[in-house]
Design a protein around this nucleic acid. Structure first.
Lengths: 344, 344
DNA sequence: GTCCAGCGCGTAACCGTTTTCATTGGCCCA
DNA sequence: TGGGCCAATGAAAACGGTTACGCGCTGGAC
């Protein structure tokens, strides 16, 4: 099934392949009648230039790649959506690669790198060494939700200030004094920054800082276990009146623990999450959380990649996009029925 | 930033480029010492073959494409995830294209087709004409959740039998006699089949069939409006005691309408959805719905595409994967606290 | 009438691989 | 010692485009 090539078109239109190329891409002036003949031939043969030949000659793929841990959950979908929109608008294809913790991730990423003009890497999916190699080989790279490696570009969402704001909301507005942090500051820079903001809020009010985070991976089952641990107060101290969760998944698990331990969320126990997953507003009571501009993160990344691909050098760009506290009922705020929020 | 090419390696190893190629891909025997020299040169220069050159020579991209409406919602993420897994395991890249109702979709799809070896098309994203063209041009294509065009391959989830089963559950187990169907049978084949099954269930019990679906697009706001319409019973007839929703989004909207009209879901109003979105189990009461094997759909599609790419011809393959009713509390079944379901 | 500028177009080089085909040289056997 | 065979390798022809370069022709300036 050999496709029709530029030579077929040239033959049919009675011109050289150079002229077909010029008509096809409008790269140089062509006489009107010639252009018409060529256009007619292209139309008749349904000619579509072969991307590989074109790419080889142009020395570019016109495609960008994106590497993410996995597609489950709304988080990455949104980022990819934003990225794809920006890329497609600029006439670039988008190749995706999900590492979901596979061993061979490094090789796969190197392979992907050889298929695209630039790479967006999300989170902790790729060993630093690989990133460094690719970057040093001159491949445009943008990192997202991940600390820069060397002088790569990077974009992330704000964590520290918003975490502090949310903690202060619990302290100042709802009067909480014993708040537990559920999450794992060590496993990701995001987590560490949220913990920092949380601690800073306590300091700024002269409160005895929380002694440490209740370790929990960012999954529901872990959140459940951590919440039980926190609320059962095995040591003689009084249990916390509020749970500050590192993300919404953890918060989901804490709801279950709260129910089991007969604590009423939003009344005698405040819970907050992070991410504003779609489910958050449908929980009873609806979850107070933090919304990240995920689409915009993807958009920014794509644009930064373009700048590198086209513009070339320049100093590394780092961007921090603002996040937003979303107050719902789980922190004790007046109940706004979930259903009344505008559709996202 | 001209990358190192096969010629650089050949020069350094003191061999011809043919030999480098042979070593690199193991396609023909090479003497041990030669191989070692070449391997050393490849290593030293960090040589990675250029995909475009290779693709051109091999006459294939080693990539597959996937076209979907948009990335929001868990549905497509899962399908793409499955597809990506299968493709990557077979050493193929995956290019994604989201049409989100854009006008230029047809051109974009044609463009994508020229970048990959095979195409998976989800739902109603692409005009039939484009699909037909590509298929007739010999491009491997698989359609998902969409009726075949001509003799293309296609895979979808079962709808009719499961819809009937779910409707019979409402009729036989919970004794409902007036059930409204909320959705739009005309907008998608999936919807039409669910409606068919719904009607068939009524017939099989000798019930006066429902006079027609309450039209609703597959979105929350539309579901809300449709539910109000159904429950307010403007015509003198008694309002339905159960709402059979075409998907979970619609069901989400009906919860709100039910609350406003003082109907208690799971008690004096049964509601069912379709898709089993992550939120479904966290609603109060948890939503009875239907789970589709989304990952498997993506996997099947990728494998079918491979078969076409490698194997070539053969009769069109159509596959229908089974779906599964998930009983929760919204239909009136005994409440299983959402939290006790195993994590997905 | 001559000269020169510039337009339209074709020739051919090039992009970086894979692969066919031919060549070389060593080895074995008669 | 010569012939045949085979393994290892290189030269060169694809693959399907883009584009630098230059040529022929036309038309205006002198």
């Amino acid at each position: 099934m050999r496709g029709t090539t530029i030579r077929d078109v040239a033959r049919r239109a009675g011109v050289s392949i150079a002229t077909v190329s010029r008509v096809q891409r409008g790269s140089a002036p062509v006489a009107d009648d010639t252009r018409d003949r060529v256009a007619a031939a292209i139309e008749a043969l349904r000619y579509v230039p072969n991307r590989l030949g074109r790419g080889l000659a142009e020395r570019r793929h016109r495609a960008m790649g994106i590497v993410f841990p996995d597609l489950s959950g709304p988080y990455f979908s949104e980022v990819i959506g934003g990225f794809e929109t920006a890329a497609t608008d600029d006439d670039h294809g988008v190749m995706v690669l999900s590492t979901h913790g596979r061993e061979a991730a490094a090789d796969r990423v190197r392979d992907l790198a050889s298929r695209v003009d630039g790479l967006l890497i999300l989170g902790r999916t790729v060993p630093d060494e690989v990133i460094r190699d690719l970057h040093e080989a001159g491949r445009p790279i943008v990192l997202l939700a991940r600390p820069p490696v060397g002088d790569t570009d990077a974009v992330r969402a704000e964590n520290r200030a918003t975490a502090a704001r949310l903690a202060l909301h619990l302290i100042d507005v709802h009067g909480h004094r014993r708040i537990a942090f559920l999450g794992d500051p060590d496993s990701s820079p995001d987590g560490a920054e949220r913990w920092d903001g949380f601690v800073a809020a306590h300091r700024s009010r002269g409160l005895a800082g929380p002694d440490g985070p209740i370790r929990s991976l960012y999954r529901q089952a872990e959140g459940y276990a951590a919440a039980r641990l926190a609320l059962m107060a095995v040591d003689a101290r009084e249990p916390p009146t509020a749970l500050f969760c590192g993300n919404d998944e953890i918060a989901l698990g804490t709801y279950r623990a709260a129910t089991e331990l007969h604590r009423r969320v939003g009344h005698d126990l405040a819970i907050t999450g992070w991410d504003d997953i779609p489910t958050a507003r449908y929980l009873a009571p609806a979850l107070t959380t933090v919304r990240q501009p995920m689409r915009e993160l993807g958009l920014w990344a794509a644009r930064a990649l373009f700048a590198r691909i086209h513009g070339g050098g320049g100093p590394p760009r780092h961007e921090v996009l603002p996040t937003q506290v979303v107050l719902r009922a789980s922190c004790g705020c007046a109940t706004t029925p979930m259903q009344e929020e505008p559709e996202r």
